[in-house]
């Protein structure tokens, strides 16, 4: 029995990655990878150019008005601020490729250390929210599609319409009052770190994740509903029904995979919204994440930190877009062969 299951899974996987021929898939992945590299190059140029425009010299800012020219020049050297534009750009990008993001002007520690510590708050938060949003939205969207035109559907559509309109940081404030102060089930803010175990850390991230997930889940549920309704009108579903499948079976066996394309697009796009949204939500809950780091960087003119965190966020968005493109090809073989 287990072996039969395994072979069935293998054949499903085989079908998913392109039947007998995986070459087109590799070709498709390679072209996407080149476009990923080009996007990253362009993004790094834009960010570098913007930050270069900033008036004011961090070295003289750090040392104050009374510093001698020699001291300032020495510190400029130290911070990697001397040299031509091209030289500095190459040093910045080259450093990032080897994991060296430079040294923070204010903290005097490697930016990579600062970022790594903060990333362990922001990234789990964004992923937690994405998981919540997906887990809530897909069944709700399916339910609405199955009950389309009936009261359940109208109720769900109304609720999601409201969910989209609610600013997540305001929803977060309401959650704090309700579930952290009135009924103290979750902490109202702060982060205990992962050293104290997963439990307390997840508890601290739950309210922020719920607040982030609500608007995204509303959007996703609507997309899921309309994508499913779209596929339900297709001929192959009617054929499946004519063969004697119930509507539920027809949806599960034939509808879902076709409906997944728009749903995957939205999930991919949502990740970038969630990462950016995490920056705002972190302020509500005083979470020591990338958001806090970036706002401190702005107020303290610690531009190397701003530059690096922004590049990291953009990198995350571009990477997710790339992964979604690959996921498309797995779901829809037509895309592998170029439209």
């Amino acid at each position: 029995m287990p072996s039969r299951m395994a072979s069935r899974d293998a054949s499903l996987w085989h079908r998913a990655v392109g039947g007998t021929n995986v070459r087109p898939m590799i070709h498709y992945a390679a072209t996407r990878l080149i476009s990923l590299a080009l996007s990253l190059l362009a993004a790094s140029l834009v960010i570098f150019a913007v930050v270069e425009v900033i008036p004011g010299d961090p070295a003289s800012f750090m040392l104050g008005l009374n510093a001698s020219e020699d001291t300032v020049a020495a510190l400029r050297d130290d911070l990697g601020l001397s040299g031509g534009l091209l030289e500095r750009y190459v040093a910045w990008v080259g450093g990032m490729l080897t994991g060296d993001f430079g040294t923070s002007y204010t903290y005097r520690v490697p930016v990579s250390e600062l970022v790594a510590a903060r990333l362990w708050v922001s990234l789990p938060l964004a992923l937690y929210a994405l998981a919540l949003s997906t887990v809530i939205a897909l069944p709700v969207g399916m339910l609405a599609a199955a009950r389309r035109g009936r009261p359940t559907d109208y109720g769900i559509m109304g609720a999601t319409q409201l969910g989209i309109a609610v600013p997540n940081f305001w929803f977060a404030m309401l959650l704090v009052v309700l579930l952290a102060i009135t009924w103290p089930i979750f902490p109202s803010g702060g982060f205990p770190g992962w050293d104290g175990g997963i439990g307390p850390a997840l508890r601290a991230l739950t309210l922020p994740a719920v607040a982030l997930a609500l608007p995204q889940a509303s959007i996703l549920a609507r997309v899921m509903r309309s994508a499913l309704i779209e596929t339900l009108n297709q001929d192959y579903i009617r054929t499946a029904r004519a063969k004697g499948l119930t509507e539920g079976q027809a949806i599960r066996r034939h509808g879902m995979r076709n409906a997944m394309i728009p749903v995957l697009t939205i999930i991919g796009m949502q990740f970038s919204f969630l990462l950016a949204g995490a920056i705002i939500i972190e302020k509500v809950f005083f979470l020591p994440g990338l958001g806090l780091l970036i706002f401190q960087g702005i107020t303290q003119r610690d531009l190397i930190v701003v530059e690096s965190v922004v590049m990291l966020l953009v990198f995350a968005v571009i990477l997710v877009t790339f992964l979604v493109d690959l996921a498309y090809a797995l779901v829809d073989p037509r895309l592998r062969h170029g439209r």
């Binding site: 960010i47 705002i280 960087g297």
Partner: peptide, 15 residues
């Protein structure tokens, strides 16, 4: 598209 509006705002604000 790779720059969410919040990130654009952060860059502009930094400048």
């Amino acid at each position: 598209f790779a720059f969410p509006s919040l990130v654009i705002a952060i860059l502009i604000t930094a400048v």
